[in-house]
Design a protein around this nucleic acid. Structure first.
Lengths: 146, 146
DNA sequence: CGTAAACGTTAGGCCCACTAACGTTAGGGC
DNA sequence: GCCCTAACGTTAGTGGGCCTAACGTTTACG
């Protein structure tokens, strides 16, 4: 079991998750918040559905996430005049500030996560994980109803 | 975000998890069952607490896991004469058979998981993940109350 | 123009990780 | 020998992330 890639992936992801969620929960945030904020910050405002496609978050979970972010003033919902089904989600200045905070938190976590690896190994690991992820992205269900 | 190791780890683990749990749930099992059964099969019978240490499963979850496995006849609880606090958990012949089944399931999943990588890359990925895991194992809380 | 699709939303389920508390039993210090 | 602490198994419950089902409304398409 100790050398099963799926198991290793899981154990390491669990560890990374612990680190990340420690950092996040100390800041009163969760993974979904971070994902949505950075997406809005770097890729611009869009609808909830589209946001879901960008971040891999289900529409049902997106609602709660946006609610949270909106309640904290990090994000604004405005209706799309041309399509009454949609909301347009926009990040606020406060939201941008928070996005940067969380990004910094996450970055410092990468360091402690990758601590045992030297620079070459870090790059190689990242490369392999990217390759794996790119390949499997296609096989992932296209987030139904979005 | 797309190149954050922690994020990549998570996404790939999620994908691996989907594959694994598909395979498992088709067989009516869960990850915890597999972990416990293979541990018993390869490392021999032991107490619940020790089993938890071997597999990284919390004692509270271990109870339910052993209950399930026992209900299906894969495992036996017998009391430790020398220490009335402990149960000794032993795998049954049926359990061994099931362990082998699940192992086969998992093995075939590794293949589809690692499909995009060539042999060298697979070994390198495994090596890096092992290194990461070995290093961080120490920092992981020693499974409280065990 | 009518049917199918997309949108946001509510409700719920599953698995895994993790915490808290409890009664019981064993072990170590003095 | 006794007390305090620690370990054991157990029950209960939390929370995050992933995922499905259903619904009313609105838009797009054939």
């Amino acid at each position: 079991m100790e050398h099963l890639p799926s198991w290793l992936l899981n154990q390491n992801a669990a560890y990374a998750g612990r680190l990340v969620s420690e950092g996040f929960s100390a800041a009163g945030a969760r993974g979904y918040h971070y994902r949505v904020l950075t997406s809005l910050d770097t890729e611009g405002p869009t609808t909830q559905a589209n946001l879901g496609r960008r971040t891999g978050i289900y529409p049902s979970d997106m609602v709660a996430t946006i609610n949270d972010l909106q309640a904290n003033g990090y994000v604004m919902r405005s209706m799309d005049k041309t399509d009454k089904r949609r909301y347009l989600v926009t990040i606020t200045p406060t939201g941008r500030k928070r996005a940067k905070e969380l990004t910094k938190t996450v970055a410092s976590i990468q360091d402690s996560l990758l601590e045992p690896l030297d620079e070459t190994e870090r790059e190689e690991l990242t490369r392999l994980l990217v390759k794996l992820h790119k390949h499997h992205k296609q096989g992932i269900p296209p987030l139904p109803s979005m």
